[in-house]
Design a protein around this nucleic acid. Structure first.
Length: 552
RNA sequence: CGGGACGUAGCUCAGCCUGGUCAGAGCGCCGCCUUUGGGAGGCGGAAGCCGUCGGUUCGAAUCCGACCGUCCCGACCA
């Protein structure tokens, strides 16, 4: 196939839009792949849609390859289904009414709908089943951002597995996991599979596929020795040991006028900051809870909520006053009547803590002796932590969550009554798993990972065209012949036949990032040949038309 | 939803502080000429309700207010 650039809607730009910051945003807009219609809502222009469809096709092939069956579920969904599963409270769901006043949602995921259909599975003999579809999702995002990374409308591949028991679910899960690795490898993406938070999905086990990128919403923690990778929200890494002062037989009150932070406290007492403790009061549905971490740490909210088993938010000044009788800066666990959750780093040893009296602290406070607390991993992994498996050095990388797989269990099947008869004649709820991939995010991640100062460098597997033939003046004939020869070999060819200056054509070619560029110009014409250039390496060689098939 | 920045031509921006030839530039676009292996050059041209509404003023892109929108940080987040 040959596409003539002179006829395409391919609006490349010399400048990036002023409000673009993320690399994927700048390059995809400049290259004429996408345009924003409004916040978080984008059109894929012809070139961008070709890439999107390439990614889609890779996913489709790998899904089909593990026996997952493609179908298509509607976007417009009765709200009633979401009420039945108890997800009607989620803020991000787009809601609308029809003219009769009936409620609908534009869902961000299709558990409800697919489970609605799964009610037709009635016997263990029909299991296992894996169903998927690739289609539009909507989320009423409070803040879309970073180009194609956080959108209000996007395409997703979501697959769902239905099994009779946990063991069978394990098998489905492994099939999906394998397919995910193949999909991202084929898409030319560098990624890590990590343990993750299930979030609003519910369920027990979940893994994220994180692609390191210059822009992204996740932080990937990896060990230099390759034996550890986790999202920072769940990373259990090892903190540096604290230098603790001599132990005291009981807590000792010390006046600390004007000391409000742990750093100031440590300096005032001439001790290691890690020998202090930081009190973080949070408010939950059950009232104020004290979260306690080491003075040099920050709290990881996702871990805290997981430890609490409920959502929390920082307490207000009034709530703190009422609960502690003191203000922030002098809070501590000793004498606090409510629930206390302390980080594991505070399990052993004595720490300095607030005295719940403005301007005073306690030295020699010991968990278990001076206060009772639940111990949990609450701290955010920090620079200087080491690998929990081997003690190796850790690196922290911004990453894009391109995929995620969950073991859901029976949450949706029970809520919607999707049951089957097992061999023993008993009715059981289907055991479900769900598996998602964000298409536009994957595309954005590829751009983030594979670009240089001139533009994108698509891997061949997802490039919008296989070859970019740049025709310069005086070489129109051989350029067309080259394009036709490649087309006859089954290649998709973008033929730049525009009446533009060479520099402009080359710059556009670099920007668009098709892996192979062929230049037909007077220089090569003298040899009856064309110049074949690798976009990624910049290597160029002169090739006779007859030999093109061996090179491209 | 909190904090910050911004909104002038298709894109990037100047002008605003100090109201009155301020409707401007570069790139892009259209026509002609010239040029052709890394965004050349010349001549001519089209193009903006200065985000919207309201207020102040003899007069508003410019000052004030409200609203809308976009981006960034945070909150939030399959």
């Amino acid at each position: 196939m040959i596409a003539r650039a002179s006829h395409l809607f391919l609006p490349t730009l010399r400048d990036a839009p002023a409000d673009a910051e993320a690399v994927n945003h700048k390059l995809l807009v400049r290259g004429g792949f996408v345009r924003q219609v409004t916040g978080g809502v984008w059109t894929f222009l012809p070139l961008g849609w070709r890439v999107h469809r390439k990614i889609e096709q890779i996913i489709r092939e790998e899904m089909d390859g593990i026996g997952s069956q493609e179908m298509l579920m509607p976007v417009l969904t009765p709200f009633e289904l979401w009420q039945q599963t108890g997800r009607d409270f989620i803020q991000e769901i787009f809601r609308l009414k029809d003219r009769k006043g009936a409620d609908y949602v534009l869902p961000m995921t299709h558990e409800e709908t697919v489970t609605f259909h799964a009610r037709e599975l009635q016997s263990y003999k029909q299991l296992p089943q894996m169903l998927y579809h690739i289609s539009t999702k909507n989320r009423d995002e409070p803040r879309p951002r970073a180009g194609l990374i956080r959108l209000r409308e996007f395409w997703m591949k979501d697959a769902y597995s239905f099994d009779r028991d946990d063991q069978a679910l394990g098998k489905s899960f492994e099939l999906q996991r394998g397919a995910y690795h193949r999909i991202f490898e084929r898409a030319g993406l560098q990624f890590s599979e990590v343990e993750a938070e299930p979030g609003m999905m519910g369920g027990k086990e979940s893994f994220d596929f994180l692609a390191p990128a210059g822009a992204g919403e996740n932080t990937l923690v990896t060990c230099e020795n390759g034996d550890f990778a986790a999202d920072i929200e769940v990373a259990r890494t090892v903190a540096r040991p604290a230098v603790l002062p001599e132990a005291l037989a009981s807590p000792d009150e010390v006046e600390t006028p004007g000391v409000k932070t742990c750093e100031a406290l440590a300096a005032f007492l001439s001790i290691d900051v890690a020998a202090t403790s930081k009190a973080m009061p949070v408010t939950t549905d059950d009232g104020v809870v004290l979260a306690l971490i080491r003075g040099d740490d920050r709290i990881e909210p996702a871990k805290l909520d997981a430890a609490l088993g409920m959502q929390s938010r920082p307490s207000t000044d009034e709530e703190i006053r009422a609960a502690f009788g003191a203000s922030g800066g002098s809070l501590g666990p000793v004498g606090f009547k409510g629930r206390i959750v302390a980080d594991e780093t505070l399990r052993d040893g004595q720490f300095v803590a607030g005295a719940n009296r403005d301007g005073w602290h306690l030295r020699g406070v010991e968990a278990g002796r001076d206060f009772q607390a639940e111990l949990a991993d609450l701290r955010e992994s920090a620079d200087g932590d080491v690998c929990p498996n081997c003690g190796g050095k850790l690196t922290f990388t911004t990453a894009i969550e391109v995929g995620h797989i969950f073991k859901l269990g029976t949450k949706y099947s029970e809520a919607l009554g999707a049951r089957f008869l097992d061999e023993d004649g008993k009715k059981r709820a289907l055991i479900m798993g769900c598996y998602g991939i964000g298409l536009a995010r994957t595309m954005a991640a590829i751009v983030e990972q594979r670009h240089d100062e001139h533009g994108i460098m698509w891997p061949a597997s997802v490039a919008p065209y296989d070859v970019h033939v740049v025709v310069l003046q005086g070489a129109e004939q051989i350029g067309l012949e080259a394009a036709e020869a490649l087309s006859a070999l089954g290649k998709d060819v973008l033929l730049d036949d525009r009446d533009q200056r060479p520099g402009e054509k080359f710059a556009d070619a670099d920007l668009i990032g098709i892996p192979v560029r062929i230049t037909a110009g007077k220089k090569s014409l003298e040899d009856g040949a064309v110049d074949v250039r690798d976009r990624a390496t910049g290597e160029e060689q002169r090739v006779k038309l007859a030999d093109l098939g061996n090179v491209v």
